[in-house]
């Protein structure tokens, strides 16, 4: 796994952190919100397992206002 060692993790860390923040905020909101636009567990799967885009899709389409 020399590929993983050749990467400077200090450079990549901010992106990983941003991704974690987005997922955390989306999940907290999903738990607190009264009713989502569709079943909540589907949204939880989308937020958790679609990389990068999941939380964004939830914030745009998942919240009904």
């Amino acid at each position: 796994m020399e590929f993983l060692e050749s990467i400077n993790w200090a450079i990549l860390a901010p992106i990983v952190i941003i991704q974690l923040i987005l997922v955390a905020v989306a999940i907290i909101d999903l738990v607190k919100i009264e009713k989502a636009n569709g079943p909540k567990w589907v949204w939880a799967l989308i937020v958790l397992f679609i990389n990068l885009l999941g939380p964004i899709i939830y914030f745009i389409f998942g919240r009904r206002s």
Partner: peptide, 17 residues
């Protein structure tokens, strides 16, 4: 709506990528 959190973060992600 959390727009103040997710819009800047998303923009940062697509730009820095």
């Amino acid at each position: 709506n959390f727009k103040w959190i997710w819009v800047p973060l998303t923009f940062i992600m697509i730009a820095v990528k």
